[in-house]
Design a protein around this nucleic acid. Structure first.
Lengths: 168, 168
DNA sequence: ATAATTATAGATATTATTTATCCAGAATAT
DNA sequence: ATATTCTGGATAAATAATATCTATAATTAT
């Protein structure tokens, strides 16, 4: 049980995109090439990001994607939810309702109206993770990286993407 | 991306087992039958629980499983870890090391010695969930359920398991 | 207008994982 | 001895994740 690699791809892409000049878009081809990942698979992830309102898309020649919101308004959780979906990690198939002693046509209120406590605990646990991820924004991440990564490296990356259009 | 149903099965089984008389064991067959789940699949989960030291097994006729520790000393996290394993939910394949600009034979320290910050955030988020689950014990769950479930229902369940051996 | 580029959507393929079953072996109570 | 129960391995089926391909629509550049 793991998050998809599409999530890892997405988070890295979005981080690069913070540095792009406003109003410009970058193509999936460039993002995939730069990171050495599958272009078509990455494009599926970006379709999800667009549907979640995290990026916007520009079709046509020199089109691509750009952040749809300010990095301050994009949280890790936004991305996780966009890529992984909204169904809880814990799958509750309500097996308690299958208990052999129960009259399946007339289940007791405890088994229908009251939530399964095991499920409640698991969902609350997930909520701890969710809250943490909601508090970490793309802007925050960008700031952290800026402090760690040498200026020259960041410039090289920025330039590579800037020139990617010219190279074609 | 979801936890396995084996986790749901396991948690419910362990909760039933709190009520079993000390020194007695219960068979997989009974646990599976009572809940209407796959017996062979459940047995695989219990092998994991045993290897994690959560239950102990008694082979042979009238053998089965019993809690290996006090319910106070069995946390939700113990069970999650036993069933799902210890690898983090977030898969970090270090795609940053594939960046096209990098000399793959001579990666910069930032990309090898420093942890990927995206990974750090995701692991810390998981840790929030982990801490919460470590604080919820089987004993606590049992107490909660005791307050919600009518005494008669709990007795019926307890009796069913008690008589399961006699029924054979 | 035409051609080239790029996102979009759907279909498909491949691989990995999850869920489930089956069987042979070892241990144990009766 | 025999029946029962866990153990481990092999296997099968179903589902999900990863990846590719194709056709289409939108847009820019020529």
């Amino acid at each position: 049980m793991q998050f998809s690699v599409g999530l890892e791809y997405s988070l890295h892409c979005l981080l690069y995109m913070v540095d792009f000049p406003a109003g410009e878009s970058i193509g999936i081809k460039e993002l995939a090439l730069y990171q050495g990942v599958s272009e078509t698979y990455l494009s599926k992830a970006f379709t999800k990001l667009r549907k979640a309102g995290i990026v916007l898309s520009v079709p046509g020649v020199n089109g691509g994607y750009a952040l749809a919101r300010k990095p301050e308004d994009i949280s890790f959780w936004n991305v996780v939810e966009a890529i992984e979906g909204t169904t809880p990690l814990f799958q509750c198939s309500e097996i308690r309702q299958r208990e052999v002693l129960l009259d399946k046509d007339n289940l007791p209120d405890t088994h229908t109206k009251c939530p399964c406590l095991i499920k409640v605990v698991m969902l609350e646990a997930e909520d701890q993770m969710r809250q943490y991820l909601k508090n970490k924004t793309l802007a925050w991440l960008h700031e952290q990286v800026k402090n760690k990564l040498p200026e020259e490296q960041r410039k090289a990356t920025s330039d590579w993407f800037k020139n990617s259009r010219a190279r074609k």
